[in-house]
């Protein structure tokens, strides 16, 4: 044990937190951990319904997903991915410093993790606002303002310089770096089975033909808002939990003998990260 850790009083702390129906602190910790893993399994299952809906509708209407996913801002998505990954690191640091009893590091890393959560939500809110402005919403609210923004359909395929304030633009990383924007013009599946693409399939980045808008594009945005919305709610819950941890840390509740809540919130935050690791490619990257 490092010198920074005061072993004095750890025994009492462990006893103070021991509930009457457990024999040892270890048994209590193991029970809590198993319970937390089971709870996280139910979280995955909660999302699994949405992943299932995504798969079903993607299989039924591949053209909707190819067409609509290009309107998601992969750059914001990437930044958010990095933000969440970093906050996952700071959360792990928080758990470690709770175990080793370094209170200052614990407080700082909790604050950094919360900052990560807030940054993620802010970028997401910006994305939502963009989608709202462009009318790229779900169900009957889907009312794309693409025509006004770009009278010429073919312009979609032109290289576009990023200008976040200039109405709707198909933003993605390729556009950002000045390359030609690639838009798949694979015909809807109704014409032929997926995979049997025409021989004159255009090379990546060379397509100039506009992609016709398929029917029921709103379905994609419905799924997009559902999945990212449910995920964002989980981020908010995570931030609330970290506030609670912060208060308890300041009250000197945690140390090498008792750090279960930090550990469990760490696991929860890991799941929040992991769900996003699936959402980002499925929604933003796969065309």
């Amino acid at each position: 044990m490092s010198e920074a850790v005061s072993v004095f009083g750890q025994e009492e702390i462990a006893r103070k937190h021991l509930a009457h129906h457990f024999d040892t602190p270890q048994q209590q910790f193991d029970s809590g951990k198993l319970g937390m893993w089971l709870f996280l399994a139910t979280e995955f299952l909660l999302f699994s319904g949405l992943f299932c809906a995504y798969s079903v509708y993607r299989a039924l209407n591949p053209e909707i997903f190819r067409y609509a996913s290009q309107y998601l801002d992969a750059q914001s998505g990437l930044i958010n991915t990095l933000v969440l990954l970093t906050s996952g690191f700071t959360m792990a640091l928080a758990v470690r410093s709770a175990q080793t009893g370094r209170k200052a590091v614990l407080i700082v890393s909790l604050l950094l993790t919360m900052a990560g959560g807030f940054t993620f939500l802010a970028i997401h809110a910006y994305e939502y606002a963009e989608k709202y402005r462009e009318g790229l919403l779900w169900g009957t609210l889907y009312n794309p303002k693409l025509q006004e923004a770009q009278p010429d359909q073919a312009a979609i395929a032109k290289p576009v310089k990023v200008n976040l304030n200039a109405g709707w633009k198909p933003l993605n990383l390729m556009a950002q770096s000045g390359y030609a924007v690639s838009h798949s013009n694979i015909a809807p599946a109704a014409i032929g089975p997926a995979g049997v693409a025409p021989a004159q399939r255009p090379q990546f980045g060379t397509s100039t033909a506009p992609m016709p808008q398929p029917a029921n594009v709103q379905l994609f945005f419905g799924i997009y808002f559902l999945m990212t919305g449910l995920h964002s709610i989980h981020v908010i819950v995570g931030i609330i939990l970290m506030t609670w941890l912060l208060i308890r840390t300041i009250k000197n509740d945690f140390g090498p003998a008792y750090y279960a809540p930090v550990d469990f919130v760490g696991l929860y935050w890991g799941v929040v990260d992991m769900v996003w690791m699936f959402l980002f490619p499925l929604l933003y990257l796969i065309r």
Binding site: T42, L45, S48, G49, A53, G139, L219
Partner: peptide
């Protein structure tokens, strides 16, 4: 533990369907 979350999300979808008209 393994089945109930699925009805949870299904009912959530139904609520969102009625409140927001998500169309799923």
């Amino acid at each position: 533990v393994a089945a109930t979350p699925v009805i949870g999300v299904t009912l959530l979808l139904l609520i969102v369907e009625r409140v927001m008209g998500i169309g799923i």
